[in-house]
Structures are given as structure tokens and as C-alpha cells.
């Protein structure tokens, strides 16, 4: 399933909870799909595909947004809580902290949908829980 196919299928999908998806392709050196969930006010999820994986990313915050004196505490908290977050993990790309989920490129639409919904819910919980570390 390439990015175009995924965009079409996601746009036509409605979950059992009534969520639908707005997809927007961002063209560049690599193809990226921006997915917004209707029915849940959260963060945009960016989906990109590599040779073996479909990677779904939510951009959380940048280095500039972290309270300098609490940075270490925040990093430790992220390490401590990472395993508790279902299907998602933390990472940093450049100066941006992200929450992401990785799937096999052979995953079907249901799995991608599950990932997008779960990632969005996780991201809201994470930002809410880490709010005190941010300026």
C-alpha cells in the first residue's frame, strides 16, 4: 500500500467510534501524508513509508519549548513512561520531540487506523502530562 492508496482508503474509512480522516499529501524528497482525525480534536499525524515500515509521527514540542531547569527531569520521565504508552514511543528528530508508531509495510488499513487513533489519543495524554516541563 503506497501513500496515495493509503490516503484514499483512509479518507473513505469510518471507525466504529465514528472517527473519519482528512488526508493531505505533502510532496517532497519523501512522500508524507498529513492526517487529521474528525471527531477527535488532537494533533495532526504525519505518515511516511520507508522500505520496511510505515511510520506515523506526531510532533510534540521543540527544544525551545522545554523549561531549561527541568529538561533532565523531563527526559527521565519520558524514559520511565515510554513503555506504558500503548503502541507508541518517544523519539527526537533534529530538535523536535515526537511520538511515533512503526508498522510493517505489509500492515492492512485496520492496523494503520488503529495506530493513528491510538497515537492521537496518546499524544494528547503525553502533552497534558508533560505540560509542567514546557514553557
Amino acid at each position: 500500500m503506497n501513500t496515495e492508496d493509503l490516503a484514499i482508503k483512509l479518507s473513505q474509512h469510518r471507525t466504529a467510534e465514528g472517527f473519519t480522516f482528512d488526508c493531505q499529501r505533502i510532496s517532497g524528497e519523501v512522500e508524507v501524508l498529513q492526517v487529521e482525525m474528525n471527531g477527535f480534536d488532537g494533533f495532526p499525524v504525519f505518515i511516511t513509508q520507508t522500505q520496511f515500515q510505515i511510520i506515523c509521527i506526531v510532533y510534540l514540542w521543540t527544544e525551545d519549548e522545554i523549561k531549561t531547569d527541568r529538561r533532565t527531569e523531563m527526559l527521565e520521565m519520558m524514559l520511565d513512561t515510554s513503555i506504558s504508552i500503548p503502541l507508541s514511543s518517544y523519539a527526537r528528530v533534529g530538535d523536535r520531540y515526537v511520538l511515533f508508531g512503526a508498522l510493517s509495510v505489509r500492515s492492512d488499513l485496520e492496523k494503520v487506523v488503529e495506530e493513528v487513533v491510538m497515537l492521537n489519543e496518546n499524544a494528547v495524554d503525553v502533552v497534558s502530562a508533560m505540560e509542567d516541563f514546557l514553557v
Binding site: I26, G28, E29, V32, I57, Y59
Partner: peptide, 27 residues
């Protein structure tokens, strides 16, 4: 690829003259 994707996303926001909201403002 993830670095490239992040660059593509950041550039796309810059082109649209929109900034990615800070985490707190999004919240």
C-alpha cells in the same frame, strides 16, 4: 528518511505561512 520527512513537513508549514503550534498552545 525521517529527517527528510521532518524537513518536508517543516517546509510545507513554512510555505503555507503557518507555524507548527507550540505544544502548550495546541493543548
Amino acid at each position: 528518511d525521517i529527517q527528510k520527512a521532518t524537513d518536508v513537513i517543516t517546509q510545507s508549514f513554512a510555505k503555507a505561512d503557518a507555524k507548527m503550534l507550540s505544544a502548550k498552545r495546541s493543548l
